[in-house]
Design a protein around this nucleic acid. Structure first.
Lengths: 242, 242
DNA sequence: TAGCTTTTTGTCAATCTGACAGAAATAGCG
DNA sequence: CGCTATTTCTGTCAGATTGACAAAAAGCTA
């Protein structure tokens, strides 16, 4: 951070939000329909410019979330995902965008806010496959956010945040399956989760279910970082070997 | 990324660089002595403002690196570390800084460039302990960079980049020990590295050493992502349990 | 040749993983 | 009430991995 005698050029700073949740056992991302140009009518991540030059970035992120999707942003823990500042990514000029990621429990259907014509949950598959096109470079941002979520699930107990306050082990497994996009063995998952110390704690030996054997209920444990981590089965080598 | 009819406020955008290397088995970070206000004379990370509004962020990072430290930046793979945009972090006004991280082999002693009065390697310990004070929030950025490097070492083969093109397993171990800050068992390390497929490949059964048994030589293997990862021994639980 | 140092090869018990069998608990149905 | 379907939970078992440690191998030096 050196400075110049030269006047430093200013750029437009924006925040974009990748809000992930689980609906019907599928990973969904919150999208808005743009109400203004450019990309008017297209789907995009919620977000927007800083309101004033002194606005804090996370504050701006929370503000945009409530403005555009009427979601109670206070309860979401926003994690910085990255900066997207490639010249030309926005037709209006140089816009640098800071992306934030949040992983959320089943959230209510959002209602359109002031800036966006509409706000709704869309399956990430539709976005990643390209079936649903997004404005700007938002598809890339979603992809990065999903990958981050996958890694985060391995090392942190955040998966419990996808569930309600009380959940069964099967429900927790469905979170992992949905985010990782692969099926897991229920018995091994059960064992692993149970003996990962501090991950989940049993809550009143209650029960549940509609058709099978009643499942025990748990709540999130005190540990935030999982050690050893949940290991995601190998899929393919990043670089071919030999 | 919604826009306003309101004129969006512009902020000053800067890049900061955390360049890590190994010198005498200790992790060092590249620092410059600031030649201008604010914090004139204090140590700081190399970096600076965008030169013009259309400059690419990574291009700016590479430019600053060569300007301030005369390092051949082309060979370094810069990885985005995060955004530091807290209001008030820079006395000149609202400055948002994008931090980049690079992990590098033994680099030459840098020479001061145009903007910085001096550029040199400093042990990260001295920075993290607070013994050496840095300008702005750069100590925090260094801390984040070191932690990122530690995690990266677990999952990627980047550790080989700290060594020269040809190295011994002991040299590779010293990289892990320096970055992780803990000692490792040579025999178990040897075994683990050897059977992590594609990590390192033996190069001509040459030898080396001055005092003990000659060590075999290796070069970086084709695999960039390590699976299974190198596991860093547990240190302490992030959240107390029970 | 003996001693020192460092690298390399083993050993062993404990733990973890992946695959799978089968018991337990409930609802629905004839 | 007994049977079946379904889901949850408890085991088992072989193979791989880990951490701790012993000891051989290969040089250099005295």
């Amino acid at each position: 951070m050196t400075d110049d005698r030269w006047v430093a050029p200013a750029v437009l700073l924006a925040v974009d939000l990748v809000i992930l949740t689980l609906r019907r056992s599928r990973l969904h991302v919150l999208l808005v329909e743009r109400g203004v140009e450019p990309y008017r009518g297209a789907s995009a991540l919620p977000g927007g410019f800083l309101r004033h030059p002194e606005e804090d970035l996370t504050a701006a992120a929370h503000r945009e979330l409530s403005e555009e999707a009427n979601l109670d942003a206070e309860t979401l823990r926003l994690e910085q995902l990255g900066v997207y500042g490639e010249p030309g990514r926005d037709p209006r000029g140089r816009v640098v965008s800071v992306a934030y990621l949040a992983i959320a429990p089943r959230l209510p259907e959002p209602t359109a806010g002031t800036d966006a014509a509409d706000a709704r949950w869309q399956p990430v598959d539709r976005v990643l496959s390209g079936e649903l096109e997004l404005a700007f470079d938002h598809r890339r941002i979603v992809a990065d956010g999903v990958e981050r979520a996958r890694v985060t699930l391995e090392h942190s107990a955040i998966a419990t945040a996808f569930c309600g306050p009380i959940f069964t082990i099967t429900e927790l497994q469905e979170v992992y399956e949905a985010v990782w996009g692969i099926p897991l063995d229920p018995r091994n998952f059960y064992r692993k989760v149970q003996k990962t110390d501090g991950f989940i704690v049993p809550v009143g030996s209650a029960r549940k279910a509609a058709t099978g054997r009643p499942a025990r209920l748990f709540k999130a444990g005190p540990r935030a970082v999982l050690y050893p981590p949940m290991v995601r089965p190998a899929e393919s080598s990043s670089t071919e070997e030999q």
